[in-house]
Amino acid sequence: MKIAIYGREFHPSVIPYVRQLLDHLISRQAELWIYDSFHRFLTEQITCPHQFRTYHSREQLPEDTGFMLSLGGDGTMLAAVSIVGPSGIPVAGINFGRLGFLASINKGEIEDALDAILDGAYDIQQRALLSVVAGDTPLFDGNPFALNDITIFKYDSSAMITVQAHLNGELLNAYWADGIIVATPTGSTAYSLSCGGPIIMPGSGNFVITPISPHNLNVRPVVISNDFELDLEIESRTGKFLLSCDSKTETVSTDTRLKIKRAAFDINLIRLKNHSFFATLRNKLLWGIDARNY
């Protein structure tokens, strides 16, 4: 089986786990395709006796690639999703980071998890993405989509910005705030949650609009159907604002009008049989650990 591997530079303490992963995949006769910059980093850290193939973009991956392994935290996983794009290649994450909502496989269960995936003992979860368009202005090197969220944020520490938000042509609100977050159900446990947004189950068919430090305290997050289109106009004293798409950020002029809607494709995430959304919430958010609950 052909397996794509994506990763970034990591702490030396992770090296034994990466070596274990590569050795196990090789023992299972896997053909490994490693992201080129990550491959260069690996060759500086460990001895690679096998001639791995490398890639720089999804167009360079074989059409029959079985799945992609992301080695790192959730940020690495988001970058891997950006590379996979509309190809349909399933993605699994080995968590070498901290929280690990998306990269759900712990480094202590690498071999068992890999065997389960290689043997087909897993589920595929389709996750909706957001896309953003700024007229004729190209964004994010042609990959203007997000698995977690699209965020509009003020450019610097100066005054707040005003975001005029229209849903399907109707005015929703004029947000006077540091910015707003438009999050998918997958991203509802990320930045949106830290700003007071709700947790939304994947597959629920919704997005959430969460203001960042709004001036009016009665402005609250709004859950909307993912069939809606959101048009945004931004006013700022600096004449520009920051637009982020998961882990990517660009500076955009306030002359630019944004359109945010559901992307035309979904991402396939690999989930092991013993992993569930609610179990992840309990483990990562420490639900139920209060001794008074027992």
Rank of each mutant, 00 (worst) to 15 (best):
residue 3 I to N: 00
residue 11 H to T: 15
residue 13 S to R: 13
residue 20 Q to V: 11
residue 22 L to D: 00
residue 28 R to T: 01
residue 34 I to N: 11
residue 37 S to K: 12
residue 42 L to D: 08
residue 43 T to I: 08
residue 43 T to G: 12
residue 48 C to P: 09
residue 49 P to D: 13
residue 50 H to C: 07
residue 50 H to T: 14
residue 51 Q to R: 13
residue 55 Y to K: 05
residue 55 Y to A: 04
residue 55 Y to F: 15
residue 56 H to S: 15
residue 57 S to I: 09
residue 58 R to T: 03
residue 58 R to M: 01
residue 61 L to V: 04
residue 62 P to N: 13
residue 69 L to R: 07
residue 75 G to Y: 06
residue 77 M to W: 13
residue 81 V to Q: 09
residue 82 S to Y: 01
residue 87 S to L: 12
residue 88 G to V: 11
residue 109 E to M: 11
residue 110 I to T: 09
residue 111 E to I: 15
residue 114 L to H: 09
residue 129 L to I: 05
residue 133 V to L: 13
residue 141 D to P: 02
residue 145 F to I: 10
residue 145 F to S: 08
residue 154 K to G: 03
residue 155 Y to D: 05
residue 158 S to N: 03
residue 159 A to C: 07
residue 163 V to F: 00
residue 164 Q to D: 13
residue 165 A to M: 11
residue 169 G to M: 05
residue 173 N to K: 01
residue 176 W to L: 09
residue 181 I to W: 10
residue 183 A to W: 08
residue 184 T to W: 05
residue 186 T to C: 10
residue 189 T to A: 07
residue 192 S to Q: 01
residue 196 G to L: 06
residue 201 M to W: 03
residue 202 P to C: 10
residue 204 S to T: 15
residue 216 N to T: 12
residue 218 N to W: 09
residue 222 V to L: 13
residue 222 V to W: 03
residue 229 E to D: 10
residue 230 L to H: 00
residue 241 F to E: 08
residue 243 L to I: 03
residue 244 S to V: 05
residue 255 D to R: 09
residue 255 D to A: 14
residue 256 T to P: 01
residue 259 K to N: 07
residue 263 A to V: 06
residue 266 D to L: 12
residue 270 I to T: 06
residue 273 K to R: 14
residue 276 S to H: 12
residue 277 F to A: 09
residue 282 R to A: 07
residue 284 K to Q: 12
residue 291 A to V: 15
